[in-house]
């Protein structure tokens, strides 16, 4: 095999891995809400947008701090707190009045919510992209891989690796929370049967607020990572959120494992299709594969066979 080809394969794999981790994180936010409340949150991308902009604003305010790592740490903590509040507010003001209404109404409302959130972000920060004042991940010099006979060496950015680690920690943390903690188990119980959960002493409202907050945090972190990768916050962030829909449909709407595996699968399909066949295939390829998968497994690879058709 030609050394250039080997390097190209390595480069594509490396990109796909970090992209997949990011997609898995975004998809997880969707799955979390679907599992606990049966709602498909079409405002997920806007949660990323709002989270990204809140992170940006905090960085602007905190850049006076001498040490950039302290500033970033404080900004991230502040962003988590703020997005938790956003999650609770959305649940309280928008979704709680809809308890008992058909699920399809709630889903329509999340579409409306996405427009409102975009408009609010536009009002406060305007339409122009803004670069992050401090790098949230330090820009290390790239790894250099050289192969004998290759025309150019391969440069790999360490950022990508760090993003992968962050996504893994978050996804793993949420996974453990869901499977092991008292509230995680209460969330699963709520998803299964709300009336029974209530009779077991579980507060449905608290669980819903918790779910929306966790999803908002996951989305906000994803938004900030995208801002880092694309060199700034902009109105394009929700577009990345849309890429999570094929992920959850592929993996199964209610499967956390599906979100993770689906995230990597879609990232690999996109990257390899655009790298080896045609760059234009990047957007289309996930849907092509999705069509085939849905023909064979209509509930997704890991989904339970009880999907509401909307």
């Amino acid at each position: 095999m030609n050394p250039d080809e080997i390097l190209k394969f390595l480069r594509l794999t490396y990109t796909a891995l970090s992209d997949g981790a990011l997609l898995a994180l975004i998809a997880l936010a969707l799955v979390l809400i679907y599992k606990a409340t049966d709602v498909i949150n079409f405002a997920n991308g806007e949660f990323m947008l709002v989270g990204g902009y809140i992170g940006y604003q905090l960085l602007v305010w905190l850049q006076v701090i001498e040490s950039p790592s302290v500033a970033v740490l404080l900004a991230v903590i502040g962003m988590v707190v703020a997005t938790t509040l956003v999650g609770v507010l959305v649940e309280r003001l928008v979704l709680r009045p809809l308890i008992g209404e058909p699920i399809i109404s709630v889903i329509m409302v999340t579409i409306g919510l996405s427009n409102v959130m975009q408009a609010i972000v536009g009002l406060i920060w305007g339409k122009n992209p803004r670069p992050l004042p401090i790098d949230i991940i330090p820009r290390f010099s790239p790894f250099r891989i050289e192969l004998e006979g290759a025309r150019r060496p391969l440069n790999l950015l360490p950022d990508t690796l760090i993003i992968l680690v962050i996504a893994f920690i978050l996804v793993g943390g949420l996974l453990l929370f869901f499977s092991r903690s008292k509230h995680g188990i209460a969330m699963r119980a709520t998803a299964d049967d709300q009336q029974a959960a209530m009779s077991m002493g579980i507060s449905i409202r608290f669980i819903f607020a918790l779910t929306w907050s966790l999803a908002a945090i996951a989305a906000a972190v994803a938004g900030l990572i995208i801002a880092h990768v694309t060199n700034g916050v902009s109105g394009d962030i929700p577009g990345v959120g849309l890429r999570a829909f094929p992920v959850i449909i592929l993996g199964g709407l209610d499967s956390i494992a599906g979100a993770i595996i689906g995230g990597f699968a879609i990232a690999f399909i996109e990257t390899f299709a655009s790298g080896y066949i045609d760059p234009g295939l990047k957007t289309v390829s996930p849907y092509l594969v999705l069509l085939i998968v849905l023909m064979i497994k209509p509930y997704g690879l890991f989904g339970q066979k009880r999907i509401e058709r909307v």
Binding site: D192, D193, Q195
Partner: peptide
């Protein structure tokens, strides 16, 4: 409950 309300997937 009258119509069983268990967490049927657990």
């Amino acid at each position: 409950f009258q119509n069983i309300e268990l967490f049927s997937h657990m």
